[in-house]
Amino acid sequence: MTGTIVKAINVHKKFAGREVLRGVDLEVRNGEVLCILGPSGSGKSTLLRCLNHLESVDDGVVWIDGQIIGYVLRDGTLKELPARKVRRQQREIGMVFQHFNLFPHMTALENVIEGPVTVRKEPRASAIARAEKLLASVGLAERRDAYPAQLSGGQKQRVAIARALAMNPKVMLFDEPTSALDPELVGEVLDVMRELAASGTTMIVVTHEIGFAREVADRVAVMVDGEIREMGPPAEVLANPTDARVRSFLARVLA
């Protein structure tokens, strides 16, 4: 149960010549909650998107559950996998986006069953039964037939979480899940994530919510300029950061 589920070694990423990630190492154990903090532009979201191959890495390797993501290692070279095989890996990794990215032409329920029915070929009836349970668990049982345009931001994000969970992912990635929400709606999404963490789901959360990180995370990582400068239990990292840049960042956000 305490095995490593996510492992990244020496991940590099460049956008138009600018180094966004400069050699990031990461290891997340099964059931662990890792919060990634850091100033905007520090590469947090890019790192997350490299973990599920929404961005391909320029150097380094990412393993999810022992499998290299996006490549196969043969004779000392990494060979790109065909799209079909990449999708097969990606469906084991749940992702929640800052801007929800719900399918606007489908109801909440249809959004949640889309993956299981279309991708996993699960029978519609059983997918619906599971989706109803998932929607109930995020507190939206009665909004199952609402379209995203009829939901508030917080409700949309909770549907998006249910949609990702419907694929029974091995790990859940959250890319600033509350940054696009009105302040009064942040709490309902964090509550759902808190329950998720308590249920033993492995989570990697890029966030600006320091309070959530302190309370829920097993470890926090602070990124600055494309590097993880500090990583450890929240009590240690948030209270006594050793790196100067991390200290000034935390001083600003904790003020």
């Binding site: 799209a83 999708r87 990606q90 986006f97 399918f103 606007p104 279309t118 991708v119 694929m167």
Partner: peptide, 27 residues
């Protein structure tokens, strides 16, 4: 159609054709 739609479909593991038929074309 917003590129985020394609990304969401990718993370669910949908193929290019499934994404086109189920997500992109209807929108």
């Amino acid at each position: 159609v917003d590129h985020g739609q394609t990304e969401a479909a990718n993370t669910l593991g949908m193929s290019r054709f499934q994404t086109l038929r189920r997500i992109i074309l209807p929108q």
